[in-house]
Design a protein around this nucleic acid. Structure first.
Lengths: 251, 251
DNA sequence: GCTTAATGTGTTATTATGACGCAATGTACT
DNA sequence: AGTACATTGCGTCATAATAACACATTAAGC
Protein backbone atom coordinates (compact mmCIF):
# COMPACT_ATOMS: atom_id res chain seq x y z
CA UNK A 1 0.00 0.00 0.00
CA UNK A 2 2.78 2.41 0.88
CA UNK A 3 4.55 1.03 -2.18
CA UNK A 4 1.70 2.09 -4.42
CA UNK A 5 1.80 5.57 -2.94
CA UNK A 6 5.50 5.86 -3.61
CA UNK A 7 5.04 4.58 -7.14
CA UNK A 8 2.65 7.47 -7.64
CA UNK A 9 4.17 9.92 -5.23
CA UNK A 10 3.50 12.80 -7.58
CA UNK A 11 -0.18 12.18 -6.91
CA UNK A 12 0.18 12.90 -3.22
CA UNK A 13 0.81 16.08 -1.32
CA UNK A 14 4.49 15.91 -0.29
CA UNK A 15 5.55 16.29 3.31
CA UNK A 16 2.02 16.31 4.59
CA UNK A 17 0.04 13.56 6.26
CA UNK A 18 -3.11 12.97 8.25
CA UNK A 19 -3.42 11.21 11.57
CA UNK A 20 -6.74 10.23 13.09
CA UNK A 21 -7.52 9.81 16.74
CA UNK A 22 -10.55 7.55 16.67
CA UNK A 23 -12.47 7.49 19.93
CA UNK A 24 -14.99 4.87 20.90
CA UNK A 25 -16.76 4.05 24.15
CA UNK A 26 -17.15 0.53 25.48
CA UNK A 27 -17.36 -1.13 28.90
CA UNK A 28 -17.28 2.31 30.48
CA UNK A 29 -13.93 2.98 28.92
CA UNK A 30 -12.84 5.52 26.39
CA UNK A 31 -11.11 3.54 23.69
CA UNK A 32 -8.73 4.63 20.97
CA UNK A 33 -8.24 2.74 17.74
CA UNK A 34 -4.56 1.97 17.31
CA UNK A 35 -2.49 0.13 14.76
CA UNK A 36 0.54 -2.05 15.25
CA UNK A 37 2.81 -2.54 12.29
CA UNK A 38 4.59 -5.87 12.35
CA UNK A 39 8.03 -4.49 11.57
CA UNK A 40 8.96 -2.96 14.88
CA UNK A 41 6.06 -3.89 17.10
CA UNK A 42 5.24 -0.26 17.67
CA UNK A 43 1.79 1.20 17.95
CA UNK A 44 0.61 4.22 16.01
CA UNK A 45 -2.44 6.25 15.17
CA UNK A 46 -4.14 5.36 11.91
CA UNK A 47 -2.96 7.80 9.33
CA UNK A 48 -2.50 8.37 5.67
CA UNK A 49 -1.40 10.68 2.96
CA UNK A 50 -3.28 13.32 1.05
CA UNK A 51 -4.11 12.68 -2.60
CA UNK A 52 -3.20 15.75 -4.59
CA UNK A 53 -6.76 15.97 -5.86
CA UNK A 54 -8.59 15.58 -2.57
CA UNK A 55 -9.55 18.12 0.08
CA UNK A 56 -7.76 17.41 3.33
CA UNK A 57 -11.11 16.82 5.02
CA UNK A 58 -12.00 14.27 2.38
CA UNK A 59 -8.66 12.55 2.82
CA UNK A 60 -9.36 12.32 6.55
CA UNK A 61 -12.75 10.71 5.86
CA UNK A 62 -10.97 8.21 3.64
CA UNK A 63 -8.46 7.30 6.34
CA UNK A 64 -11.24 6.84 8.86
CA UNK A 65 -13.36 4.84 6.49
CA UNK A 66 -10.52 2.54 5.48
CA UNK A 67 -9.79 1.74 9.08
CA UNK A 68 -13.22 1.41 10.57
CA UNK A 69 -15.59 0.87 7.70
CA UNK A 70 -17.88 3.57 9.00
CA UNK A 71 -19.12 6.55 7.10
CA UNK A 72 -20.82 9.77 8.02
CA UNK A 73 -19.48 9.94 11.53
CA UNK A 74 -18.26 12.84 13.56
CA UNK A 75 -14.84 13.89 12.33
CA UNK A 76 -13.12 17.10 13.18
CA UNK A 77 -9.75 18.63 12.51
CA UNK A 78 -8.21 19.79 15.76
CA UNK A 79 -4.58 20.71 15.20
CA UNK A 80 -1.61 20.50 12.89
CA UNK A 81 1.73 19.23 14.13
CA UNK A 82 4.90 20.49 12.57
CA UNK A 83 7.95 20.27 14.77
CA UNK A 84 11.03 19.90 12.61
CA UNK A 85 12.24 16.68 14.10
CA UNK A 86 8.93 14.97 14.56
CA UNK A 87 9.66 12.27 11.98
CA UNK A 88 13.43 12.41 11.98
CA UNK A 89 14.89 8.92 11.71
CA UNK A 90 11.45 7.41 11.42
CA UNK A 91 11.96 5.76 8.08
CA UNK A 92 15.50 4.52 8.47
CA UNK A 93 17.34 2.27 6.08
CA UNK A 94 16.29 -0.79 7.96
CA UNK A 95 12.63 0.03 7.70
CA UNK A 96 12.88 0.99 4.03
CA UNK A 97 14.56 -2.30 3.32
CA UNK A 98 11.91 -4.16 5.25
CA UNK A 99 9.21 -2.41 3.25
CA UNK A 100 11.07 -3.24 0.06
CA UNK A 101 11.48 0.41 -0.87
CA UNK A 102 14.57 1.53 -2.70
CA UNK A 103 16.41 4.55 -1.28
CA UNK A 104 15.50 6.77 -4.22
CA UNK A 105 11.77 6.24 -3.76
CA UNK A 106 12.25 6.37 -0.03
CA UNK A 107 13.27 9.99 -0.22
CA UNK A 108 9.64 10.98 -0.50
CA UNK A 109 9.06 9.37 2.89
CA UNK A 110 12.16 10.39 4.77
CA UNK A 111 11.71 14.11 4.26
CA UNK A 112 10.28 16.27 6.98
CA UNK A 113 6.54 15.69 7.43
CA UNK A 114 3.85 17.89 8.87
CA UNK A 115 0.71 16.10 9.98
CA UNK A 116 -2.86 17.27 10.34
CA UNK A 117 -4.67 15.80 13.32
CA UNK A 118 -8.32 14.79 13.14
CA UNK A 119 -10.37 13.20 15.84
CA UNK A 120 -13.38 11.01 15.29
CA UNK A 121 -16.18 9.96 17.61
CA UNK A 122 -17.65 6.64 16.59
CA UNK A 123 -20.20 4.17 17.85
CA UNK A 124 -18.05 1.34 19.13
CA UNK A 125 -20.67 -1.30 18.36
CA UNK A 126 -20.81 -0.37 14.70
CA UNK A 127 -17.11 -0.46 14.06
CA UNK A 128 -15.18 -3.30 12.57
CA UNK A 129 -11.45 -2.60 12.86
CA UNK A 130 -10.01 -3.29 9.47
CA UNK A 131 -6.34 -4.06 8.92
CA UNK A 132 -5.27 -2.82 5.51
CA UNK A 133 -2.75 -5.59 5.21
CA UNK A 134 -2.83 -8.93 6.96
CA UNK A 135 0.31 -8.29 8.98
CA UNK A 136 -1.17 -5.25 10.60
CA UNK A 137 -2.97 -5.34 13.92
CA UNK A 138 -5.81 -2.92 14.50
CA UNK A 139 -7.18 -2.75 18.01
CA UNK A 140 -9.27 -0.73 20.41
CA UNK A 141 -7.19 0.23 23.40
CA UNK A 142 -8.35 1.88 26.60
CA UNK A 143 -7.03 5.41 26.53
CA UNK A 144 -5.58 4.90 29.97
CA UNK A 145 -3.52 1.98 28.78
CA UNK A 146 -2.14 3.33 25.56
CA UNK A 147 1.42 2.07 25.14
CA UNK A 148 4.31 3.98 23.65
CA UNK A 149 3.44 5.33 20.25
CA UNK A 150 5.64 6.16 17.30
CA UNK A 151 6.77 9.69 16.51
CA UNK A 152 4.76 12.36 18.30
CA UNK A 153 1.57 10.32 18.23
CA UNK A 154 1.27 10.44 21.99
CA UNK A 155 1.29 14.22 21.84
CA UNK A 156 -1.33 14.15 19.10
CA UNK A 157 -3.52 11.81 21.11
CA UNK A 158 -3.23 13.96 24.23
CA UNK A 159 -4.12 17.08 22.30
CA UNK A 160 -7.14 15.35 20.79
CA UNK A 161 -8.36 14.40 24.24
CA UNK A 162 -7.77 17.93 25.52
CA UNK A 163 -9.79 19.26 22.61
CA UNK A 164 -12.55 16.80 23.31
CA UNK A 165 -12.66 17.91 26.94
CA UNK A 166 -13.04 21.52 25.94
CA UNK A 167 -15.63 20.77 23.29
CA UNK A 168 -17.66 18.87 25.86
CA UNK A 169 -18.50 22.29 27.25
CA UNK A 170 -19.44 23.69 23.88
CA UNK A 171 -21.52 20.96 22.32
CA UNK A 172 -23.25 17.67 23.04
CA UNK A 173 -21.26 14.63 21.98
CA UNK A 174 -22.99 11.42 23.03
CA UNK A 175 -24.80 10.91 19.77
CA UNK A 176 -21.62 9.83 18.07
CA UNK A 177 -20.26 7.62 20.79
CA UNK A 178 -23.27 5.74 22.12
CA UNK A 179 -25.63 3.28 20.53
CA UNK A 180 -29.08 4.50 19.54
CA UNK A 181 -30.63 3.56 22.85
CA UNK A 182 -28.74 4.23 26.03
CA UNK A 183 -29.27 5.00 29.69
CA UNK A 184 -28.50 8.16 31.59
CA UNK A 185 -25.91 6.40 33.74
CA UNK A 186 -24.17 5.27 30.56
CA UNK A 187 -24.13 8.80 29.23
CA UNK A 188 -22.82 10.01 32.56
CA UNK A 189 -20.04 7.42 32.51
CA UNK A 190 -19.08 8.72 29.10
CA UNK A 191 -18.76 12.23 30.44
CA UNK A 192 -16.92 11.07 33.53
CA UNK A 193 -14.51 9.04 31.46
CA UNK A 194 -13.68 11.88 29.12
CA UNK A 195 -13.35 14.39 31.93
CA UNK A 196 -11.66 11.91 34.24
CA UNK A 197 -13.84 13.18 37.05
CA UNK A 198 -16.81 11.97 39.08
CA UNK A 199 -20.09 13.79 38.57
CA UNK A 200 -23.13 13.83 40.81
CA UNK A 201 -25.85 11.56 39.41
CA UNK A 202 -28.75 13.82 40.19
CA UNK A 203 -27.15 17.03 39.07
CA UNK A 204 -26.02 15.38 35.87
CA UNK A 205 -29.53 14.21 35.06
CA UNK A 206 -30.95 17.66 35.59
CA UNK A 207 -28.31 19.39 33.54
CA UNK A 208 -28.34 16.95 30.66
CA UNK A 209 -32.12 16.86 30.38
CA UNK A 210 -32.32 20.65 30.56
CA UNK A 211 -30.35 20.81 27.33
CA UNK A 212 -33.42 19.35 25.69
CA UNK A 213 -31.79 16.86 23.38
CA UNK A 214 -32.95 13.67 25.05
CA UNK A 215 -36.03 11.59 24.39
CA UNK A 216 -37.13 9.33 27.23
CA UNK A 217 -38.21 6.01 25.77
CA UNK A 218 -40.99 3.84 27.15
CA UNK A 219 -38.54 1.08 27.71
CA UNK A 220 -36.10 -0.11 30.31
CA UNK A 221 -32.74 -1.71 29.90
CA UNK A 222 -33.02 -5.46 30.36
CA UNK A 223 -30.63 -8.00 31.83
CA UNK A 224 -29.04 -5.68 34.30
CA UNK A 225 -28.22 -6.08 37.92
CA UNK A 226 -30.22 -3.91 40.30
CA UNK A 227 -32.90 -1.52 39.24
CA UNK A 228 -33.38 -1.38 35.50
CA UNK A 229 -32.54 2.06 34.16
CA UNK A 230 -34.70 3.85 31.62
CA UNK A 231 -33.63 3.95 28.02
CA UNK A 232 -33.18 7.21 26.19
CA UNK A 233 -32.34 8.26 22.68
CA UNK A 234 -31.27 11.57 21.25
CA UNK A 235 -33.73 13.89 19.61
CA UNK A 236 -31.60 14.28 16.51
CA UNK A 237 -33.28 17.44 15.37
CA UNK A 238 -32.75 19.27 18.62
CA UNK A 239 -29.34 17.68 19.01
CA UNK A 240 -28.19 19.12 15.70
CA UNK A 241 -29.62 22.46 16.61
CA UNK A 242 -27.65 22.59 19.85
CA UNK A 243 -24.58 21.29 18.04
CA UNK A 244 -24.86 24.21 15.66
CA UNK A 245 -25.61 26.92 18.20
CA UNK A 246 -23.36 25.75 20.98
CA UNK A 247 -24.07 25.11 24.63
CA UNK A 248 -22.74 27.73 27.00
CA UNK A 249 -22.92 31.22 25.71
CA UNK A 250 -20.68 32.55 28.47
CA UNK A 251 -20.87 36.20 27.60
CA UNK B 1 11.72 38.00 -1.51
CA UNK B 2 9.61 35.37 -3.18
CA UNK B 3 12.43 35.07 -5.70
CA UNK B 4 14.88 34.18 -2.99
CA UNK B 5 12.53 31.51 -1.72
CA UNK B 6 12.22 29.98 -5.16
CA UNK B 7 15.99 30.08 -5.65
CA UNK B 8 16.21 27.97 -2.51
CA UNK B 9 12.94 26.16 -2.78
CA UNK B 10 14.48 22.95 -1.52
CA UNK B 11 14.91 24.75 1.81
CA UNK B 12 11.19 25.23 2.21
CA UNK B 13 8.40 22.82 2.95
CA UNK B 14 6.63 22.32 -0.40
CA UNK B 15 2.92 22.88 -0.78
CA UNK B 16 2.54 24.28 2.70
CA UNK B 17 2.19 27.86 3.84
CA UNK B 18 1.23 29.91 6.85
CA UNK B 19 -1.31 32.69 7.00
CA UNK B 20 -1.71 35.00 9.97
CA UNK B 21 -4.82 36.80 11.04
CA UNK B 22 -3.44 39.63 13.12
CA UNK B 23 -6.03 41.30 15.33
CA UNK B 24 -5.64 44.69 16.93
CA UNK B 25 -8.04 46.97 18.75
CA UNK B 26 -8.25 50.68 18.12
CA UNK B 27 -10.93 53.37 18.22
CA UNK B 28 -13.36 50.79 19.49
CA UNK B 29 -12.87 48.76 16.37
CA UNK B 30 -11.46 45.33 15.89
CA UNK B 31 -8.78 45.74 13.24
CA UNK B 32 -7.10 43.21 11.01
CA UNK B 33 -3.68 43.70 9.49
CA UNK B 34 -3.92 43.24 5.74
CA UNK B 35 -1.51 43.49 2.86
CA UNK B 36 -2.08 44.78 -0.63
CA UNK B 37 0.28 43.58 -3.29
CA UNK B 38 0.73 46.11 -6.07
CA UNK B 39 0.27 43.65 -8.92
CA UNK B 40 -3.44 43.13 -8.85
CA UNK B 41 -4.59 45.52 -6.16
CA UNK B 42 -5.93 42.68 -4.09
CA UNK B 43 -5.76 42.42 -0.35
CA UNK B 44 -4.51 39.38 1.48
CA UNK B 45 -3.56 38.10 4.90
CA UNK B 46 0.12 38.29 5.76
CA UNK B 47 1.59 34.89 5.12
CA UNK B 48 4.75 33.04 4.38
CA UNK B 49 6.38 29.74 3.76
CA UNK B 50 7.89 27.25 6.14
CA UNK B 51 11.65 26.82 6.22
CA UNK B 52 12.45 23.15 6.14
CA UNK B 53 14.41 23.50 9.36
CA UNK B 54 11.87 25.46 11.39
CA UNK B 55 8.95 24.32 13.49
CA UNK B 56 5.69 25.56 12.02
CA UNK B 57 5.04 27.56 15.19
CA UNK B 58 8.41 29.24 14.81
CA UNK B 59 7.69 30.02 11.17
CA UNK B 60 4.45 31.66 12.24
CA UNK B 61 6.29 33.80 14.78
CA UNK B 62 8.63 34.85 12.00
CA UNK B 63 5.78 35.87 9.71
CA UNK B 64 4.20 37.87 12.49
CA UNK B 65 7.47 39.49 13.49
CA UNK B 66 8.35 40.44 9.93
CA UNK B 67 5.04 42.15 9.47
CA UNK B 68 4.54 43.87 12.77
CA UNK B 69 7.92 44.07 14.41
CA UNK B 70 6.50 42.69 17.63
CA UNK B 71 7.72 39.70 19.52
CA UNK B 72 6.39 37.58 22.28
CA UNK B 73 2.75 38.23 21.57
CA UNK B 74 -0.21 35.94 21.66
CA UNK B 75 -0.14 33.66 18.65
CA UNK B 76 -2.19 30.56 18.23
CA UNK B 77 -2.76 28.03 15.51
CA UNK B 78 -6.46 27.65 14.88
CA UNK B 79 -7.05 25.65 11.72
CA UNK B 80 -5.51 24.25 8.57
CA UNK B 81 -7.09 24.90 5.21
CA UNK B 82 -6.71 22.38 2.46
CA UNK B 83 -9.42 22.48 -0.17
CA UNK B 84 -8.02 21.22 -3.46
CA UNK B 85 -8.82 24.28 -5.44
CA UNK B 86 -8.01 26.91 -2.86
CA UNK B 87 -5.05 28.26 -4.80
CA UNK B 88 -5.96 27.10 -8.26
CA UNK B 89 -5.09 29.74 -10.83
CA UNK B 90 -3.61 31.97 -8.17
CA UNK B 91 -0.14 32.18 -9.64
CA UNK B 92 -1.02 32.45 -13.30
CA UNK B 93 1.42 33.17 -16.09
CA UNK B 94 0.72 36.85 -15.90
CA UNK B 95 1.62 37.03 -12.23
CA UNK B 96 4.71 34.86 -12.64
CA UNK B 97 5.88 37.14 -15.43
CA UNK B 98 5.21 40.19 -13.31
CA UNK B 99 7.22 38.70 -10.48
CA UNK B 100 9.99 37.86 -12.92
CA UNK B 101 9.76 34.16 -12.20
CA UNK B 102 10.46 31.66 -14.94
CA UNK B 103 7.86 28.92 -15.46
CA UNK B 104 10.20 26.18 -14.27
CA UNK B 105 10.79 27.86 -10.93
CA UNK B 106 7.15 28.85 -10.80
CA UNK B 107 6.11 25.24 -10.56
CA UNK B 108 6.96 25.26 -6.89
CA UNK B 109 4.39 28.02 -6.45
CA UNK B 110 1.63 26.85 -8.72
CA UNK B 111 1.20 23.47 -7.13
CA UNK B 112 -1.60 22.82 -4.70
CA UNK B 113 -1.00 24.54 -1.37
CA UNK B 114 -2.32 23.77 2.09
CA UNK B 115 -2.12 26.62 4.57
CA UNK B 116 -1.96 26.66 8.33
CA UNK B 117 -3.92 29.47 9.92
CA UNK B 118 -2.63 31.33 12.97
CA UNK B 119 -4.24 34.22 14.72
CA UNK B 120 -2.46 36.84 16.73
CA UNK B 121 -3.68 39.33 19.30
CA UNK B 122 -1.48 42.39 19.42
CA UNK B 123 -1.39 45.71 21.16
CA UNK B 124 -2.32 48.11 18.37
CA UNK B 125 -0.28 50.94 19.83
CA UNK B 126 2.93 48.94 19.80
CA UNK B 127 2.68 47.79 16.22
CA UNK B 128 4.40 49.33 13.25
CA UNK B 129 3.07 47.77 10.05
CA UNK B 130 6.09 46.87 8.02
CA UNK B 131 5.97 46.36 4.26
CA UNK B 132 8.54 43.81 3.22
CA UNK B 133 9.03 45.51 -0.08
CA UNK B 134 8.32 49.14 -0.89
CA UNK B 135 5.53 48.38 -3.35
CA UNK B 136 3.53 46.58 -0.73
CA UNK B 137 0.88 48.26 1.36
CA UNK B 138 0.34 47.05 4.92
CA UNK B 139 -2.66 48.43 6.70
CA UNK B 140 -4.97 48.00 9.67
CA UNK B 141 -8.51 47.56 8.44
CA UNK B 142 -11.69 47.46 10.50
CA UNK B 143 -12.89 43.87 10.45
CA UNK B 144 -16.30 45.09 9.39
CA UNK B 145 -14.87 46.75 6.32
CA UNK B 146 -12.54 44.09 5.05
CA UNK B 147 -12.62 44.12 1.25
CA UNK B 148 -12.43 41.09 -1.02
CA UNK B 149 -9.41 38.99 -0.20
CA UNK B 150 -7.39 36.65 -2.37
CA UNK B 151 -7.90 32.90 -2.36
CA UNK B 152 -9.82 31.65 0.65
CA UNK B 153 -8.45 34.34 2.94
CA UNK B 154 -11.92 35.56 3.75
CA UNK B 155 -12.82 32.09 4.98
CA UNK B 156 -9.63 31.96 7.03
CA UNK B 157 -10.37 35.35 8.56
CA UNK B 158 -13.93 34.36 9.43
CA UNK B 159 -12.79 31.16 11.03
CA UNK B 160 -10.21 33.04 13.07
CA UNK B 161 -12.87 35.37 14.36
CA UNK B 162 -15.17 32.46 15.15
CA UNK B 163 -12.37 30.84 17.09
CA UNK B 164 -11.69 34.06 18.94
CA UNK B 165 -15.37 34.31 19.91
CA UNK B 166 -15.34 30.81 21.32
CA UNK B 167 -12.06 31.32 23.13
CA UNK B 168 -13.47 34.43 24.75
CA UNK B 169 -15.52 32.03 26.84
CA UNK B 170 -12.56 29.89 27.73
CA UNK B 171 -9.88 32.40 28.55
CA UNK B 172 -9.22 36.08 29.18
CA UNK B 173 -7.88 37.95 26.19
CA UNK B 174 -7.57 41.65 26.87
CA UNK B 175 -3.96 41.51 27.95
CA UNK B 176 -2.83 41.04 24.40
CA UNK B 177 -5.08 43.60 22.75
CA UNK B 178 -5.09 46.55 25.12
CA UNK B 179 -2.36 48.90 26.29
CA UNK B 180 -1.01 48.38 29.76
CA UNK B 181 -3.46 50.75 31.35
CA UNK B 182 -7.05 50.70 30.25
CA UNK B 183 -10.55 51.38 31.52
CA UNK B 184 -13.36 48.94 32.11
CA UNK B 185 -15.50 50.54 29.40
CA UNK B 186 -12.63 50.03 26.96
CA UNK B 187 -12.36 46.39 27.92
CA UNK B 188 -16.11 46.05 27.54
CA UNK B 189 -16.00 47.62 24.09
CA UNK B 190 -13.40 45.05 23.14
CA UNK B 191 -15.68 42.25 24.20
CA UNK B 192 -18.66 43.81 22.51
CA UNK B 193 -16.74 44.31 19.31
CA UNK B 194 -15.52 40.74 19.15
CA UNK B 195 -18.91 39.31 20.06
CA UNK B 196 -20.79 41.85 17.97
CA UNK B 197 -23.24 42.24 20.81
CA UNK B 198 -24.11 44.80 23.48
CA UNK B 199 -23.38 43.90 27.07
CA UNK B 200 -24.77 45.43 30.21
CA UNK B 201 -22.23 47.78 31.81
CA UNK B 202 -22.90 46.81 35.37
CA UNK B 203 -23.09 43.10 34.83
CA UNK B 204 -19.93 43.21 32.77
CA UNK B 205 -18.05 44.95 35.55
CA UNK B 206 -19.19 42.40 38.07
CA UNK B 207 -18.32 39.43 35.92
CA UNK B 208 -14.96 40.68 34.77
CA UNK B 209 -13.81 41.71 38.23
CA UNK B 210 -14.96 38.39 39.68
CA UNK B 211 -12.46 36.64 37.46
CA UNK B 212 -9.82 38.23 39.61
CA UNK B 213 -7.35 39.27 36.95
CA UNK B 214 -7.75 43.04 37.21
CA UNK B 215 -5.83 45.50 39.30
CA UNK B 216 -7.58 48.79 39.96
CA UNK B 217 -5.08 51.62 39.66
CA UNK B 218 -5.12 54.78 41.70
CA UNK B 219 -5.46 56.82 38.58
CA UNK B 220 -8.16 58.09 36.26
CA UNK B 221 -8.14 58.45 32.54
CA UNK B 222 -7.50 62.08 31.59
CA UNK B 223 -8.71 64.20 28.70
CA UNK B 224 -12.02 62.49 28.29
CA UNK B 225 -15.50 63.82 27.85
CA UNK B 226 -17.81 63.24 30.80
CA UNK B 227 -16.87 61.46 33.96
CA UNK B 228 -13.29 60.23 33.99
CA UNK B 229 -13.18 56.45 34.21
CA UNK B 230 -10.79 54.57 36.46
CA UNK B 231 -7.70 52.98 35.00
CA UNK B 232 -6.99 49.29 35.42
CA UNK B 233 -4.21 46.93 34.50
CA UNK B 234 -4.03 43.17 34.42
CA UNK B 235 -2.55 41.19 37.26
CA UNK B 236 -0.27 39.22 34.99
CA UNK B 237 0.32 36.45 37.45
CA UNK B 238 -3.36 35.73 38.00
CA UNK B 239 -4.06 36.37 34.34
CA UNK B 240 -1.64 33.65 33.29
CA UNK B 241 -3.08 31.32 35.87
CA UNK B 242 -6.60 31.75 34.51
CA UNK B 243 -5.26 31.48 30.96
CA UNK B 244 -3.79 28.13 31.88
CA UNK B 245 -6.73 26.73 33.81
CA UNK B 246 -9.54 28.08 31.69
CA UNK B 247 -12.56 30.13 32.62
CA UNK B 248 -15.81 28.22 32.59
CA UNK B 249 -15.51 24.69 33.77
CA UNK B 250 -18.95 23.79 32.48
CA UNK B 251 -19.04 20.25 33.75
C1' DG C 1 -37.93 -12.35 52.70
C1' DC C 2 -33.71 -9.67 53.44
C1' DT C 3 -29.62 -7.44 51.82
C1' DT C 4 -27.39 -4.84 48.45
C1' DA C 5 -26.51 -1.77 44.88
C1' DA C 6 -28.11 0.66 41.69
C1' DT C 7 -31.90 4.09 39.77
C1' DG C 8 -35.63 7.87 40.05
C1' DT C 9 -37.14 11.96 42.26
C1' DG C 10 -37.01 15.18 45.10
C1' DT C 11 -35.14 19.59 48.65
C1' DT C 12 -32.28 23.20 50.18
C1' DA C 13 -28.51 26.56 50.36
C1' DT C 14 -25.46 29.01 47.65
C1' DT C 15 -23.93 31.27 43.67
C1' DA C 16 -24.37 33.33 39.08
C1' DT C 17 -27.03 35.96 35.94
C1' DG C 18 -30.14 39.43 33.88
C1' DA C 19 -32.59 43.59 34.32
C1' DC C 20 -32.75 47.53 36.43
C1' DG C 21 -32.31 52.39 39.73
C1' DC C 22 -29.80 56.16 41.24
C1' DA C 23 -26.14 59.10 42.66
C1' DA C 24 -21.53 61.06 41.24
C1' DT C 25 -18.57 63.24 37.90
C1' DG C 26 -17.00 66.13 34.39
C1' DT C 27 -18.07 68.51 29.67
C1' DA C 28 -20.65 71.67 27.00
C1' DC C 29 -23.80 75.11 26.43
C1' DT C 30 -26.49 79.17 27.77
C1' DA D 1 -22.32 80.50 37.29
C1' DG D 2 -25.94 77.41 36.43
C1' DT D 3 -28.00 73.72 34.03
C1' DA D 4 -28.46 69.92 30.77
C1' DC D 5 -26.34 65.76 29.46
C1' DA D 6 -23.61 61.77 28.79
C1' DT D 7 -20.97 58.59 31.16
C1' DT D 8 -19.16 56.21 35.21
C1' DG D 9 -19.52 53.83 39.81
C1' DC D 10 -22.09 51.27 42.90
C1' DG D 11 -26.02 48.91 44.32
C1' DT D 12 -30.70 46.14 44.38
C1' DC D 13 -33.83 42.49 43.28
C1' DA D 14 -35.91 38.53 40.98
C1' DT D 15 -34.72 34.55 38.64
C1' DA D 16 -31.87 30.78 37.03
C1' DA D 17 -28.09 27.61 37.58
C1' DT D 18 -25.30 24.86 40.56
C1' DA D 19 -23.62 22.00 44.44
C1' DA D 20 -24.65 19.08 48.15
C1' DC D 21 -27.49 15.94 49.99
C1' DA D 22 -32.07 12.72 51.58
C1' DC D 23 -35.13 9.25 50.65
C1' DA D 24 -38.03 6.08 48.25
C1' DT D 25 -38.01 2.49 44.39
C1' DT D 26 -36.51 -1.43 41.87
C1' DA D 27 -34.49 -5.82 40.81
C1' DA D 28 -30.85 -9.52 41.66
C1' DG D 29 -28.82 -12.78 44.62
C1' DC D 30 -28.42 -15.07 48.79
Amino acid sequence: MIKSILDNSENYQPGLSIDCVIFGFHDNQLKVLLIKVPHNEQWSLPGGFIPINEDIDTAAVTVLNERTGVEGVFLRQFSTFGKIKRNENHFDNELLEYLNINPEQGKWLTRRFVTIGYYALVDFSKIFPNPINPHEIVEWIDHKEVPNLILDHREILDKALDTLRVELNLMPIGYNLLPEKFTIPELQKLYETILDKKLDRRNFLRKITNIGILKKLDEKKSNVAHKAPNLYSFDKEKYDEVLKNGLNQGW
